[in-house]
Amino acid sequence: MQGLHLTADLYQCHCEAAWLTDASRLGEWCVKAVEASGLQAVNQLFHTFPATPRGPGGVTATVLLAESHVCLHTWPEQRAVTVDVYVCNFGGDHSLKARTLMATMIERFQPEWTEQRSLDRGDGQA
């Protein structure tokens, strides 16, 4: 179960507002970004939450990968996004592809600052 789990919290994103509120647009782009990074999408689910008194609803976008998953959650009222990229490295090391995908995700949202973490998963034992 060896793998790499990357997370990023993106703050004060300067992207177009639609990237934070339009599940279809964001989802389609996520699938293309996954494929461009060399990972394989096997299923997806994109959901826009209803508006609240604080503003438009955010989006959850999840792409299931043959290698594991990528998931984004947006908070348009805060211009914030969380990104989670996890790849298992069974059968090959997908770490570079995961890092490439994360960089693409961050670039899309144009945050003023990010908090990123990287976690090696599993102990490498069969």
Rank of each mutant, 00 (worst) to 15 (best):
E16I: 05
T114W: 10
H69L: 13
E16C: 04
A51V: 01
P111H: 03
C71G: 09
T114E: 13
A98D: 07
L20H: 08
R108T: 08
T100M: 08
V87N: 05
F90M: 00
R25D: 14
Q78T: 12
S37D: 01
K97F: 09
M105C: 15
R121F: 08
L45G: 09
R54Q: 14
K97T: 06
R54I: 02
M105V: 13
M102P: 13
T74V: 05
W29P: 11
A98F: 08
L26W: 07
V34D: 10
R117S: 15
P76H: 06
V59C: 05
D93G: 03
A51N: 08
L45C: 08
D120V: 04
E77A: 15
S118I: 12
L65H: 14
T74E: 03
I106G: 02
V63I: 12
P111M: 02
S37A: 09
P50H: 05
Q40N: 14
T21G: 07
T60D: 02
R79I: 03
C71N: 14
R25M: 15
T100Y: 01
K97C: 07
A51C: 04
P50L: 02
W75Y: 12
N89W: 00
R99Q: 08
L64Y: 11
P76N: 05
G57N: 03
C88S: 11
R108K: 12
E115T: 11
T114A: 09
A61Y: 06
W19G: 11
D93R: 04
T62P: 00
H94V: 15
Q78R: 14
T104F: 05
E107N: 13
P53N: 00
A17P: 00
Q44H: 13
I106H: 03
D22T: 10
P56R: 10
V59P: 09
G91V: 04
T74P: 02
D93V: 05
R54F: 02
W19R: 07
G58E: 01
Q44R: 10
S37W: 02
E16W: 03
G58W: 03
A33V: 00
Q110Y: 06
F90A: 02
P76S: 07
L39C: 14
S37R: 00
A17D: 00
A36P: 12
L45S: 11
W19S: 11
M105F: 14
Q116F: 11
Q116G: 13
E77I: 13
M102L: 14
E115Q: 12
N89T: 01
T104D: 03
C71V: 13
